[in-house]
Nucleic acid binder design. Structure first.
Length: 279
DNA sequence: CGCCTACCCTGCTCGC
DNA sequence: TGCGAGCAGGGTAGGC
């Protein structure tokens, strides 16, 4: 995480800062980690999209003769950004600045304390080097996310939480919103092979949770994680029912929320509302 | 092929 | 007060 709501909030906020600007130079000291960034230099940002948790900065074709470093390919490009766990954009250089996007109208800084973030420049749609992006499931808030498809896939799925986190049945769900969606649909995180009625509830919960979280500007955690570049915090953390609520009473039944580790992830659920069924 | 696990990385919290 | 251990986890490589 940041997950879809935090990434979408970031997208909306950096759009006016970058669209229409020329990336004059991209500065960082980890060429093995931030790939092909020199290819973006001299190009105009024409738009910023998002796919799951990836930001996709569209870069205009270069005027070939103008920039020799891009002589090998002058068509449009995409600059991918994944925020990882702690990535975000800032308007000032900081201790954790990893990548600086110099533009013709000032710089924008990519900060990432824990260095799980990714930056790469690729040809549009060329995601072979990013298997998760390549195999990304439908956007949860789009018409491409269809209940019937989801129900069918869920019938043969393994443990539902890791399945959601795989980005295959639906994109953009991370640890917070997986726990929230499962709480809402009363499913145990380790439940396998969902019945159609269960899968329909989960489908509705994912849509509802994601829509509400986007509208709230995402979740900003107690330590300030996922705060936006302008210092604004999301508000959805105030409506978490499961995530980081362990030790407190379930908002539905009053039984204490538990925390377990499932597939290496902290996992929060209500042991009374979310019962594992043998299948 | 698909599932599962280990690992990456570093700031912060906690206990002694 | 200082310090080391433990924890946070998305995506990917690699094993089975």
């Amino acid at each position: 995480m940041p997950e879809l709501p935090e990434v979408e909030t970031t997208r909306r906020k950096i759009e006016p800062l970058l669209v229409g600007r020329v990336l004059t130079r991209i500065e960082h000291d980890a060429p093995h980690k931030y790939l092909g960034t020199h290819r973006a230099e001299g190009r105009t940002v024409t738009g910023i999209g998002r796919r799951g948790k990836y930001l996709l900065l569209q870069l205009a074709a270069s005027e070939a003769a103008e920039d020799e470093t891009n002589a090998e390919y002058s068509g449009p490009l995409e600059l991918l950004v994944h925020l990882g766990m702690t990535g975000g954009f800032r308007l000032e250089h900081g201790k954790h600045t990893r990548v600086t996007l110099h533009t013709d109208e000032g710089a924008v800084y990519f900060n990432d304390a824990r260095k799980f973030g990714k930056v790469a420049v690729v040809r549009p749609g060329e995601y072979a080097a990013f298997p998760t992006l390549h195999g990304m499931g439908p956007e949860p808030l789009s018409d491409d996310f269809r209940e019937a498809d989801f129900v069918k896939l869920a019938a043969s799925a393994g443990a539902v939480k890791p399945w959601l986190l795989s980005q295959k049945p639906v994109s953009g769900v991370g640890n917070i919103y997986a726990d929230e969606s499962l709480w809402m649909s009363r499913l145990h995180p380790a439940q396998t092979r969902l019945r159609p009625a269960e899968a329909r509830k989960l489908y509705a919960a994912v849509r509802e949770v994601m829509a509400a979280a986007v509208a709230a500007g995402g979740s900003t955690l107690g330590d300030g994680t996922y705060q936006q570049h302008d210092g604004e915090a999301g508000l959805f953390q105030l409506r978490h029912h499961a995530y980081a609520r362990n030790g407190t009473p379930c908002d539905r039944c009053g039984v204490t929320i538990e925390k377990i580790v499932l597939a290496q992830r902290g996992t929060h659920f209500c042991p009374h509302c979310q019962v594992l069924k043998a299948r």
